[in-house]
Simulated scan of single mutants.
Amino acid sequence: MTEALFRHNAYAQEAAARVVSAGPEGLVLDRSIFYPRAGGQPGDSGKLCWDGGDAAITEAVKGEGGAILHKLADGAPLPAPGTQVTLVLDWPRRHRHMRMHSAMHLLCSLIPGAGVTGGQVGAEKSRLDFDLAEPPTKEWLTERLNALVAEDHAISEEWITEEELAANPGLVRTLSVQPPRGAGRIRLVRIGPQAAPVDLQPCGGTHVRNTAEIGRLEVLKLENKGRQNRRISLALVEN
């Protein structure tokens, strides 16, 4: 199992680690700051360096038994098992994923009661699909999203037991994918205060610390993807 350092600090950009195994499929390390592709959020990219070499990491994905597999560029050198390495995250790309993922939770909060049928976090644009007959207009959604961003709500996490989640099924917004069970506990991401959260739902992804850090947003388009499936695409607006 790889120790997931991003769980303790999503803002860590460098970390030391040791190679557990190395092969053409990638590297497994004893610890990592790289988020592995899951839940619609892409796997992180970056590089690792060691005494006498370095290699680009193209993507982190889930391996077997809780391992994080770091995929390398074709032809990259492989450090031997036991080698001490330094991981360097492609931070601008990860930070955009964090901002986008938090923005998608805000979007969920604006469409209460509608199940989420799919979604994808992207550095340039993201999307959520809702089981919804008629969504609000993109102008209204853009206005409300940016109002929530400007209100500077704190974003935090907490853990509940699987039994607590079973007793509160309304916390789960996704229809096609359920939170992973078997570990005994479920991570919740909360936006806003404890007593009256803007959004609260199970999530394993990385997020920013507050909504102000997301920056300005724009809803790009609304699409019909089926009789009851509406896709909402949004993007970060950089100054």
Rank of each mutant, 00 (worst) to 15 (best):
G115H: 07
R99M: 07
A55C: 01
N239G: 13
H8D: 05
D74H: 10
P180K: 12
P179N: 12
V20G: 05
H8E: 08
G215N: 06
A10N: 05
H95D: 15
A154H: 06
G63A: 03
A133F: 08
R127I: 07
P36E: 00
G226M: 10
L106T: 06
N210C: 15
A38T: 07
T117W: 09
G113S: 12
R144V: 08
Q201E: 14
Q84S: 13
D74V: 05
Q41E: 05
L222A: 13
M98S: 02
P197N: 10
K138L: 07
P136I: 06
P42A: 04
G122W: 10
V88M: 04
G82Q: 15
L222K: 01
I68E: 03
I160V: 15
P135R: 08
G170V: 14
T137A: 10
E163L: 12
A73F: 00
V172G: 08
L5P: 03
G63L: 01
G205Y: 05
P112F: 14
G52N: 00
L188C: 03
G53Y: 00
G122L: 14
P81K: 04
G119A: 08
A154Y: 06
R209D: 15
A55V: 02
W50K: 06
K225P: 08
V198D: 11
Y35W: 01
Y35P: 06
L78T: 02
N224V: 14
P24Q: 06
V61K: 01
Q228H: 13
I57T: 02
H97V: 04
W91E: 02
I214L: 10
G184A: 05
V121F: 07
A4K: 13
N168V: 04
R31M: 02
R7H: 12
P197S: 11
R37A: 15
P197Y: 05
I191L: 09
G66L: 11
G43P: 06
S126Q: 11
L141M: 14
L234G: 11
H105L: 03
L217H: 00
G43L: 12
K225Q: 14
N239R: 15
E3C: 04
A12S: 11
L148I: 02
Q228Y: 14
I111S: 08
K47C: 10
S109E: 11
G40K: 01
G192L: 05
S21T: 11
N229E: 06
L165Q: 05
P79S: 05
H8Q: 13
G226R: 12
D74Q: 01
P136T: 12
V19W: 02
E139C: 13
A10W: 11
V121N: 09
P112I: 13
Q120F: 12
L145P: 08
L29C: 03
Q194H: 09
S176V: 15
A17C: 03
V61G: 00
L234R: 00
A67V: 01
A212M: 14
V198C: 08
K138Y: 02
V28E: 09
G43E: 02
H101Y: 04
A114P: 07
D30C: 13
D44F: 02
E213N: 10
G53K: 00
A212Q: 12
G215W: 01
